[in-house]
Design a binder for these strands. Structure first.
Lengths: 227, 227
DNA sequence: GCAGCGGTAATTTTCGAAATTTTTGGATTT
DNA sequence: AAATCCAAAAATTTCGAAAATTACCGCTGC
């Protein structure tokens, strides 16, 4: 693995997890020290991330972490629902035994981690298994372009979930694991309409929860929201 | 404009137009001579194009122009229809006077160029206006993510149209300009169902024409197709 | 005939410094 | 006091060479 690839993985990892905060300038001298390499591999990684919209670049003024906005969250979620519901339809139609097994396996692993508490509870392991579960549902859709866009939108929206993940601040009255199980159940039963409806509901609830948290944390709306 | 940006534009341009053929290795020494710059800006451009799937990279083995395949054409077209029909719905719902004017203007410019013959006929100017027309239809959808994906899929499918463009080899019996006019008409009438149906038809006809030409040019299927 | 093996050439990758541009801070002027 | 300008500092961008890896080619041995 080349240094440029390591730089890409490390930067992407740190941006997605929020260790490099949205909007933060990415100075080459800093990154060079942080990741222990020269400018060349870093610039190559930054250019790749720029094309993925995780990094913004301005001519002769360097790079910064792409900012977040409530508008973008809604935009990305709407498109996600459109693309993922279509992909889910295709997967349910085309999925074979391996697809079913992948869903069962990913759901089980996700539930195991979700049930862990104390020192075993690792929010990032949970996040990885959540990602894997959603991917497993769509894996049989047989469309590389769809899977690429799904991945792009997953990453784009994952950054918005970090405050909730870190605070473990899910609203009371929502059982996300039950939603996942019901989603898997509908898919395995090959009930397209039910599966699609549950996927859409799952995302709409998530985006609403996220929007609430973001509004609460936004100083401009904090007073209004606190009413 | 930095050299890296010039390199990105030039490489993208040459790949899309087929001047750098699909599958061709992109050696840095060649590119350095071709574009008159050092390795650094070229590598940055290649990394951006890799993220856009116009270039494939393999660790320590350099870059090559991304190959084409009939499967990818069908995959990209299906997804294009899904995303663009949704974007067209939104545009028809949200579009204002400027949106309507943009469509009328782009259609007129496209028709002007399509009518030109002899030395005035410039296939690449026609292509640019075709691109602009399709963009104008969706420009009011108010979704940056959608527009990015539309652009990605347009570029991905444009490479397949080059043989037809260069040969001016459209099948007899198809009037593409009439399709464009009908599409614009339905959109301006705010008839969502009609506009969406015409857009879908437009793309399905195109992909069928392209598939025919590709099969004809493919030595493996040439004999069968010639029957 | 051909699979394996060295060694050379070609190529990619990375670094460090030079060139270029932007930013900063203070002195000067209006 | 605000605006302007200039030089120093900081940052990005680019180059050219060094380092590392792969590809090629003739050779050997079976």
């Amino acid at each position: 693995m080349t240094l440029a690839e390591k730089a890409y993985d490390a930067l992407r990892h740190d941006i997605i997890r929020g260790e490099l905060a949205p909007g933060r300038p990415l100075r080459l001298a800093d990154l060079s020290e942080r990741y222990g390499m020269g400018f060349s591999p870093l610039r190559e990684a930054l250019n790749r991330l720029q094309a993925e919209r995780l990094v913004m670049a301005e001519s002769l003024r360097g790079f910064r972490v792409a900012p977040l906005s409530l508008e973008e969250l809604h935009d990305a979620t709407s498109l996600r629902i459109l693309i993922e519901t279509e992909a889910l339809c295709a997967s349910v139609r085309l999925g074979d035994d391996a697809w079913e097994a992948g869903i069962v396996s990913a759901l089980h692993a996700l539930n195991l981690q979700a049930g862990r508490t104390g020192p075993e509870a690792d929010i990032w392991e949970l996040e990885a298994r959540h990602h894997a579960f959603h991917h497993a549902l769509l894996a049989a859709c047989n469309s590389p372009w769809t899977l690429e866009f799904v991945e792009r939108l997953y990453v784009a929206t994952e950054r918005y979930r970090i405050p909730i993940l870190l605070a473990a601040a899910l609203p009371a009255g929502r059982d996300v694991q039950a939603e996942h199980s019901a989603l898997a159940e509908a898919a395995l039963e090959r009930d397209i309409d039910k599966a699609v409806a549950r996927l859409r509901e799952h995302y709409l609830r998530t985006v609403n929860d996220l929007a609430d948290v973001i509004r609460l944390n936004d100083p401009r709306t904090a007073r209004v929201a606190a009413k």
